[in-house]
Amino acid sequence: MSSQSTHDKSQAVYDWSWFRRGVLSFGTLPSLVLTSAFIGFGGLARDAGVSLGQLIFMVPVVWALPSHLILVAGIAADASMLAIALAVSLASLRMLPMVMALVPEVRVPGTKRWHLLMASNLVAITAWVNLMQRSDKIPPRGRLPYFVGFALSVMVMSTLAAALVHQLAGSFPPYFMAFLTFLTPLYFATSLWNASRYSVERLALVCGFWLLPAARFVAPDFAILLAGIGAGLFSFGVYLLRGPR
């Protein structure tokens, strides 16, 4: 909880032994979840006419599966750069509150803004959820190294998985793909529930999920933003009305 542990000025800012632990968490559930999502993406990119080199480039530099999906759909439809950029920036708005929630978890005395700017490029849902869920069990100075190590290792694995599927021209049986896809919602929901610090976060989780079909009915193109921000504001309202619990 306390991050005021700078009794010794010569002490390093971060505890990099946690970097290795972050890297070694590949093979755990969250990295399995993300890698499996990119297995499906590799086939999709191939079908859209994306070359292997372009695929290996786009997975790490974008590092957000919803943005990847919009890009590949745009490439398949020969869409204009501006149209893709607009759709991607709307879909990526979620990065803003995610990064804002992450920074106080990983920031310690001595953290420079450029450290955070660099690390923020690794923020995507899976690594974010993983850090938010585990940060209580990691000493503050180990959190940024852990996050960077974890995110880099899943990034490498996801890129390899996508590239491999791109090269293997075949496809997987539908049941296997359904199983892989279903891992993602189950993992996000259970780990976010465990990551919550305030009961209203759990309220936001339940509301965001059940609001989505209603939001799709109102504005299908903006359903995620509408349901997500709506659920967040409603839960915060409840927090203001009854105080922290």
């Binding site: 979620r94 049941y175 359904a178 929901a189 967040g232 915060f236």
Partner: peptide, 24 residues
């Protein structure tokens, strides 16, 4: 901020369940 971030991820979960693409 935490409520909105959680709500947005929850909406992504909802999208996969209520409006999936592919095998699901």
């Amino acid at each position: 901020v935490r409520c909105i971030a959680t709500g947005l991820v929850a909406a992504v979960i909802g999208q996969i369940i209520f409006a999936p693409t592919g095998a699901l």
